[in-house]
């Protein structure tokens, strides 16, 4: 794993000291020379499966590229320095990981002063869940600026249908943070889906202490949800909820309330029964396909739609299924990934 070693090296040195490594070749077996493109890549918390998918896709398509690797190390304060470096080095493309990095490099599309952002060089992002709500672009169908990329969320309706095929239900509970715009808009979407898919939504929000969501009273809130007849608890991609899996999921389990996650972490580490997720690796491939359109076909990013995946992965937590005595329908085993550990 030559590439992996380079990365660890890069991470160890930190972003500031990495300038000397600017010339590192990603190692696709091509020599620098005419036509080689330069991608300036900024990750948020080191290399993930997204970058594996991105690199493999480019390699499989024989792209002649080299990378300049940077890592924010979960610190957005480093981003202005990267912007300066990008403007100086003038790479062919910038890759950004996640909403904070993308916003820090590209800025809001409606920002009054764009001097501190990259506004000319094409930017391809991966793992931004709601680019329009975050203000990165005005529309996903037609970004209209130097930014495009791959979204990793599974459409809400697809989630509900997957839930239905695991265990048909009439009532579904959600617990979310009222101050998170993203969660509020998903809950609005769920309300709208009630009639179409024939279910009833039971809503609860985390208690707020000093304007911040609090873990206080979670078991009581869940008991209320269960009391009202919920057959599923849907763990929507709420940032605060993400930090509370360890409290929420065992409490739901003790109430015999099955949990359905929208994020991979919910089922892998949070103990949810099922999750329907977009694979990081596949998101990386999708982002790479956008990058290739810019680098090889010369299509401007403002004309490349921002897309999400068409196929998702269903992950089932068998240990939880056993505890709930709620095993998956047998045909689901044809396509689901089963966690048995």
């Amino acid at each position: 794993m030559k590439r992996r070693q380079f990365l660890e090296l890069g991470l160890g040195l930190g972003a500031g000291a990495a300038a000397s490594l600017a010339g590192i070749q990603a190692g696709f077996g091509q020599q620098p020379g005419d036509g080689q493109k330069v991608i300036y890549r900024i990750t948020y918390r080191g290399r993930t499966a997204v970058e594996e998918g991105f690199d493999d896709y480019l390699a499989a398509n024989g792209a002649n590229v080299r990378f300049i690797e940077r890592d924010a190390n979960r610190d957005t304060a480093k981003l202005p320095e990267f912007v300066r470096e990008i403007k100086e080095m003038k790479p062919d493309l910038v890759y950004t990981w996640g909403t904070p990095v993308t916003l820090g490099i590209a800025g809001r599309y409606d920002a009054p002063d764009k001097a501190d952002y990259v506004t000319k060089i094409p930017i391809v992002f991966a793992l931004v869940s709601a680019p329009v709500q975050a203000g990165i672009v005005k529309s996903t169908a037609h970004p209209g600026r130097n930014v495009t990329g791959a979204v990793h969320v599974v459409p809400t309706e697809t989630q509900i249908r997957a839930m239905e095929s695991y265990l048909p239900f009439k009532k579904m509970g959600v617990l979310y943070t009222l101050s998170e715009q993203n969660s509020v808009s998903i809950v609005e979407e769920l309300r709208a889906l009630q009639g179409k898919l024939g279910f009833q939504l039971i809503e609860r929000t985390f208690r707020m202490v000093d304007g911040k969501p609090s873990a206080e009273g979670i078991p009581e809130l869940l008991a209320e949800i269960k009391q009202e007849g919920a057959e599923w608890l849907y763990l929507l991609p709420d940032t605060f909820l993400g930090t509370q899996y360890k409290t929420v999921v065992p409490a739901a389990l003790s109430l015999k309330l099955p949990t359905f996650g929208a994020a991979e972490l919910a089922v892998r580490e949070g103990g949810a029964l099922v999750a329907l997720v977009a694979r990081y690796y596949s998101v990386g491939q999708l982002a790479a396909s956008k990058a290739l359109k810019i680098l090889e076909q010369g299509i401007p990013p403002e004309d490349i739609p921002i897309e999400t995946l068409k196929r998702f992965s269903l992950i089932i937590n068998m240990k939880v299924a056993k505890e709930l005595d709620l095993y998956p329908p047998i045909e689901m085993l044809n396509y689901a990934e089963v966690l048995t550990g």
């Binding site: 068998m318 299924a321 005595d325 095993y327 998956p328 047998i330 045909e331 085993l333 048995t340």
Partner: peptide, 16 residues
């Protein structure tokens, strides 16, 4: 199904 731990008596969705 048996391999991932579903008991033989507890298979779901067989009829469908």
């Amino acid at each position: 199904a048996l391999e991932v731990g579903v008991p033989l008596d507890d298979l779901r969705g067989i009829d469908g």
